[in-house]
């Protein structure tokens, strides 16, 4: 793996310590910041590939830091939150965070999320790849065709396809209800999450082997959905 640069904005020393060890074992270069202010400076000067941001910072609200950052950068951000900050988590995702980790979290969990974000970052540059496959499904984005691996055609309505396409475009990212509704249905539908649920159910029935226990179109309870490639 290439040398990636990760900015870690976290005030707890012990957490910084193990996250650094874990990331360095993946071959990342880790830059630590204890405050939000410091973190923003590091993010601006070091041009990192990923930012890990704790929502409970001593000097500034983590959400503010995220908003500032999104003003000038699309660098992937993973937020760390405690369970009591459920609302903050949604806000963070709506504000542009790509993923979240709930404390306490293990190293395996952390690295999985980090890898996913770094890969997505890499892939996003690679727009030319029009074919994506997951499970027994193959999607040809150029031809807007969905087939099984055995070549069987799967019929999707246009909205179903737009939803699927948006999910596939953001692999590994938690997409909130608001975001999906805004992007697929349009800004006037952001307050009708049940539309989304109906369509998501239909997609699962058509694409998942066991719709009750989906493997790719995952639910993030209370937050939204995530496509796990």
């Amino acid at each position: 793996m290439n040398e990636f640069t990760v900015v870690l904005i976290e005030d707890e020393k012990q957490i910084r310590r193990f996250v650094r060890v874990a990331l360095e074992s993946e071959g990342c270069q880790v830059i630590e910041a204890i405050t939000g202010e410091r973190g923003l400076i590091e993010a601006a000067t070091r041009k990192p590939d990923l930012i890990i941001l704790d929502l409970g910072l001593p000097d500034r609200d983590g959400l503010e830091v995220l908003r500032d950052l999104r003003g000038w950068s699309q660098i992937p951000v993973i937020v760390l939150s405690a369970r009591t900050q459920e609302e903050d988590k949604i806000h963070a995702l709506d504000c542009g965070a790509d993923d979240y980790l709930t404390k306490p979290f293990g190293v395996g969990e952390l690295l999985a999320r980090v890898r996913a974000q770094l890969r997505r970052h890499q892939l996003s540059g690679d727009i030319g790849q029009s074919r994506i496959s997951f499970g027994h499904i193959q999607v040809d984005r150029a031809k807007r065709l969905v087939t099984t691996l055995t070549g069987e055609h799967i019929h999707l309505t246009s909205l179903e396809y737009r939803l699927l396409a948006y999910l596939l475009a953001h692999p590994g990212k938690v997409l909130t209800h608001r975001e999906l509704l805004r992007e697929v249905w349009g800004p006037s539908h952001v307050e009708s999450p049940h539309y989304l649920r109906v369509y998501m159910g239909n997609l699962r029935k058509k694409l998942e082997a066991d719709p009750a226990r989906p493997d790719f179109l995952l639910t993030e309870s209370g937050l939204g959905y995530r496509f796990k490639p």
């Binding site: 310590r17 874990a22 009591t84 404390k103 190293v107």
Partner: peptide
């Protein structure tokens, strides 16, 4: 609970790191 959570996160993470 709040004050317990932070050291626990460190504990989980550090022991994880160590096991690698």
């Amino acid at each position: 609970s709040h004050d317990l959570r932070t050291p626990l996160t460190a504990l989980v993470g550090l022991s994880d790191t160590l096991s690698l």
